[in-house]
Amino acid sequence: MRHNRRLRWAAVPIAASLSLVLAGCTTAQLNGFLPGFEEGQPPVTDNTERVSGLWVTSWIVLLVVGIITWGLTIWAVIAYRRRKGQTGLPVQLRYNMPIEVFYTVVPLILVLGFFAFTARDQQEIEQPFAEGEDVVHIEAISKQWAWDFNYVDEDVYSPGIQGQLSDEGPAGSLVESEIPTLVLPVDAHIEIELNARDVIHSFWVVDFLYKKDMIPGKTNYMYVTPTREGTYAGKCAELCGEYHSLMLFNVKVVSESEYQDYIQSLRDKGQEGQLSSEYDRNQNLPGTGAPQLKEEE
């Protein structure tokens, strides 16, 4: 009884200290220093908090496991060190069923827990928007080494070239105006259809905390709702050739009126219609409709 009372009194200051520390954390600290968060601002998308929650919780669990493991290791090194005058081997511990079961069950629970929470969040993030919802349809087409964007509903497109190195400024700096830009309306449901023209690429908007592979002959989709206006860096996250590092793009989240103005500017440039698979390099892939080569008998 007295032992339980001592534990209770010890838990009170620990809980109070933990609450005080967490209350003083900034938004960046509470979200594991991940991009996509600013003090006093909403997250960049409707999915960023879910991803950061999984990240932070996983690290907390791993830190607790690490502290316990290292604590027991250090304790064993000190408690069972060889004393002066001792010779021979100490008593060996072996075939201890309770300890072996513990060492098997605990890691299994951790692995299953990480898998369950990851699968839960992935299912939510990958869930298509419900039928009848107002959705903006975008097609992003990757190519060595740039991006084309089709605004499907408005039947306009924006072609892109790979990032261009600047002759001015620091070495390796880029001409920002030459980087392809995908413009999205804020607070709108966005469905991005992802296709590749040549090799495997990966569509990654850093502040969205999510990326999706783009595989020739296969169409993937990304579902996201941008919730904060701004310009966010994007890049290819799959090594795709010599100029992979220059395969950059920007995502600009704007108001609905600015979005409509941008669409009109594409029409004014004569960029009406859609960029299609006619520019694909892999015309003999299964599913493209091209005749397939047959092996000789």
Rank of each mutant, 00 (worst) to 15 (best):
T27G: 09
D148R: 08
E229P: 08
Q283D: 03
A119S: 08
A10C: 01
E176H: 11
L62F: 10
A140H: 09
Y262R: 09
T181M: 10
Q162D: 07
S173P: 05
V64M: 15
P286S: 12
V44F: 14
L209Y: 11
A233W: 03
R5T: 03
K143E: 00
V224T: 08
L63E: 10
P107D: 01
R228K: 05
K269M: 05
T227F: 01
E191P: 06
R82T: 07
H137D: 07
T57I: 11
L293T: 12
S17L: 15
V65K: 05
E297L: 15
T104D: 05
G113D: 02
E256A: 15
A233K: 05
R94L: 12
Q123K: 13
V56S: 04
S166G: 01
Q122S: 14
T104P: 04
V56F: 04
L63W: 13
E191C: 08
E272P: 01
T27A: 13
L54S: 12
L112T: 13
A130N: 04
L246V: 07
F129K: 01
I99T: 14
G71A: 11
Q264S: 06
E295V: 13
T57H: 12
G160L: 04
E295P: 06
G234E: 10
Q92K: 07
F102P: 05
F208S: 10
L182I: 09
D198T: 10
P180F: 11
R197A: 07
I99F: 15
T288D: 02
A76D: 12
L285S: 12
Q144D: 15
Y80V: 02
P13K: 00
Q127L: 05
T69Y: 07
V51G: 03
D198E: 09
D134N: 14
A10I: 02
T288K: 04
N284Y: 13
Q29D: 06
V65A: 13
G230P: 10
F102I: 14
K269Y: 01
I141E: 01
I141T: 03
N31L: 04
E178V: 09
Q162K: 12
T227Y: 02
T69G: 06
A119L: 07
I14M: 15
A28S: 02
F249G: 07
T288G: 03
D280V: 09
L239R: 07
F249D: 08
T118G: 06
V205P: 08
L30R: 15
P43T: 00
T69P: 01
A15C: 15
A11V: 02
K143N: 02
E154I: 07
